[in-house]
Simulated scan of single mutants.
Amino acid sequence: MTTLRFFAGSYTSPLPHAPKAEGKGIYSLNLDLDRGLLTAPHLAAEVAQPSFLASHPHLPVLYAISELDEGQVSAYGIEPDGSLQLLNQQSTQGASPAHVSVDAAGRYVLCTNYVSGLSVLAFPVSGDGSLEPCAASDTHHGHGPNAQRQEGPHPHSVTPSPDGRHAYVADLGTDEVVGYDLDPDRLLKRIGRANLPPGSGPRHTAFDPAGLFAFVTLELLPGVAILRREPESGELALMDICLVQLPDFSGTNAPAEVMASPDGHFVYVSNRGHDSVAVFRFDPASVRLTLLQYAPTLGHTPRGCVLTPDGSLLLAGNQDSSSITVFRRQHDSGLLQVMGTFDCPTPTSFCFG
């Protein structure tokens, strides 16, 4: 039996966009890769509102933002038994941080504040994985046409490119993806931006393995944007918009997470409202996505989703029904098959460690 440890963030207090909050912090679970089974969640660290997680690429260290009025990002050492030991914390210098990530080399932890304050921050990583004080930051300005959701900037995520040279902030409030340099001498200097359709609300970004294409969920449209990336300059160019069309669904749908398969041939998008994972085939020659499947998550509000490193399984966290659905992924067809649904308090984000 091959098992893989992973961690789940949660909401610990109700918010307008998260009225159900049954979590107490960060949970540790073990995943049976062969059978698609999960162990019961174990509380690894008690912390407020750890709504997004990321792990260091080389060290046994996990990073978590706390979605609070005075946001913070925490570094935890991962113990052999799956428990987490706090290394240190840093302020995000803003309200309601929404995302945390780590560059491919493990040099910087990157964060965004969704509501106010600094839009994007870079924290150097010490030798033990702890966080040094913020070394660079930037602030977005502007708004979009949706008066209720886009009255100002809302940086929702910051995603490093696979080569670790650049990072990209998807701003739901300004309908743009802003590129940044990760070179230590030009840390968080802007390298350009891609403008997306007005009112589309870009949320999260995923890259193909080569870093030549970016896929961005459009929460308000709803849909997925495909952008071409120039590796040397880091500039992005909008190539196509693929709408998430649900002819048999009359409710409100909001795409959340986006993932690319390890071979880059398939793209997966979680749908909150329709409560499904959309499966697309990606053709780099035509730069088009073709819908293959809507796989029901058997729960409500699939917010955080993740593929296992080998791409054999996909996990969907049903935030409002406190469950995780495990899918087997067919490597050749990209299609998903449900293996089981397991209890987990208000899951919001996953990472392996």
Rank of each mutant, 00 (worst) to 15 (best):
Q93P: 01
Q93D: 10
A95P: 01
H99N: 11
V102K: 09
A104I: 07
A104N: 10
A105Q: 15
A105V: 10
C111M: 08
T112F: 00
T112E: 03
N113P: 03
Y114P: 11
V115L: 08
V115H: 07
F123V: 03
V125Y: 02
G127K: 09
D128A: 06
L131Y: 11
L131W: 12
E132W: 07
A135E: 07
A135H: 05
D138I: 02
G142V: 08
H143L: 09
N146A: 13
N146P: 10
N146Y: 09
Q148L: 11
R149H: 12
G152S: 11
P153N: 08
P153V: 06
P153A: 08
S157T: 07
V158N: 02
P162T: 05
P162F: 01
D163I: 06
A167G: 02
A170N: 01
A170V: 03
L172K: 12
E176M: 02
V177F: 01
V177N: 00
D181T: 14
P184F: 04
P184G: 01
D185L: 09
R186C: 02
L188Q: 00
N195P: 00
G199K: 09
G199D: 03
G199E: 06
G201S: 09
P202H: 06
P202T: 04
R203N: 08
R203L: 02
P209W: 10
L212A: 02
A214G: 06
T217L: 02
